[in-house]
Amino acid sequence: MSVAEELEAGLVLREDRDGIARITLNRPRAYNALSLGLMAALQSELEKIATDQTVKAVVIEGAGKGFCAGHDLREMRSRTDEAFHQTVFAACSQLMLTVTDLPQPVIAKVHGIATAAGCQLVATADLAIAADSTRFGTPGVNIGLFCSTPMVAVSRAIPRKQVMEMLLTGEMIDAETAVAHGLINRAVPETGLEDAAQEMAGKIASKSPLVLKTGKKAFYRQLEMPLADAYAYTSQVMVDNMQARDAAEGIDAFIEKRAPEWKGE
């Protein structure tokens, strides 16, 4: 199936409700492997969400038995030319950057498996909640393809020794270990996964969209700065934030002991 055909096949499903965009990766028979078509569809949907002021939070999940098994290896082997492989990995890298740069917080709702680029997507998401039966891994070393691009996100989410063990052995970790490593926020019984993800997304969606956008952008920018630069940068962010209408409204509402009315400005 060509990329154009896949784009027409409903590879990404979206449902919006109460300020939350629910995005479903929809290649269940392939464990939602990231074909070029699926990545293009997800990229397109995220770009639409970025400018949609009605969306305050995003949940990404997978259809079928697992969240995402990484790149589509059959597609990868269908072409042997270097240019094609460059296209695939460039598309995936751009997709991950889009998740990070998205104004709205992104929650990965994970079940079954999240491996290789699927684990990368979990690590890239701002928050992640998983069924306690979920397994995570970067198993590329087992098939002769080191998980180099997944490593970028995973190594920024969990400590060095733990990620090196995952990368060098290719062994899977369970959800309890993923929580301990910091790859995901929490693990819950699979029967409670939907409610837990909805509760987390709902809490976020109840906040000022301007403040969410401001805070997410500042968080990732300051991480890459030296300490003094980070304080200088975030101090100015707070100064700018204090000039916003929602900051005045939020502080007044707190003082007056009432619920704030956010305008996103």
Results as ranks from 00 to 15, higher is better:
154 V>L: 06
79 R>T: 00
104 Q>L: 01
150 P>V: 01
135 R>Y: 05
75 E>D: 10
87 T>P: 08
81 D>P: 06
68 C>K: 11
53 Q>S: 14
106 V>S: 02
127 L>Q: 09
120 Q>P: 03
159 P>F: 00
78 S>G: 15
57 A>L: 02
73 L>D: 10
116 A>T: 10
153 A>S: 13
103 P>R: 12
146 F>C: 02
47 E>F: 02
86 Q>R: 15
92 C>T: 09
159 P>R: 12
63 A>P: 00
124 T>W: 02
160 R>V: 11
61 E>C: 10
155 S>A: 15
128 A>G: 06
66 G>P: 06
109 K>C: 15
71 H>E: 14
118 G>Y: 09
128 A>P: 05
152 V>L: 07
49 I>C: 02
55 V>E: 01
132 D>W: 02
112 G>V: 01
139 P>T: 01
144 G>R: 10
79 R>W: 03
47 E>L: 11
96 M>S: 11
134 T>I: 04
71 H>C: 11
121 L>I: 13
112 G>T: 02
54 T>Y: 01
143 I>S: 08
131 A>D: 03
48 K>E: 04
119 C>A: 14
119 C>T: 08
136 F>P: 03
71 H>L: 15
107 I>T: 07
109 K>L: 14
130 A>E: 00
107 I>N: 07
68 C>D: 15
100 T>F: 09
155 S>Q: 12
135 R>I: 08
157 A>T: 03
83 A>Q: 09
67 F>H: 09
74 R>W: 05
68 C>W: 09
106 V>I: 06
89 F>E: 06
82 E>T: 13
129 I>V: 14
149 T>V: 05
61 E>H: 12
98 T>A: 14
107 I>K: 11
92 C>I: 13
84 F>K: 09
75 E>Q: 15
78 S>W: 06
114 A>Y: 09
113 I>K: 13
65 K>N: 12
151 M>L: 13
155 S>G: 09
120 Q>Y: 06
117 A>D: 12
139 P>W: 00
83 A>M: 10
59 V>S: 03
78 S>V: 06
156 R>H: 07
133 S>K: 08
127 L>R: 14
65 K>E: 13
102 L>F: 00
117 A>Y: 14
70 G>V: 01
141 V>A: 04
150 P>C: 03
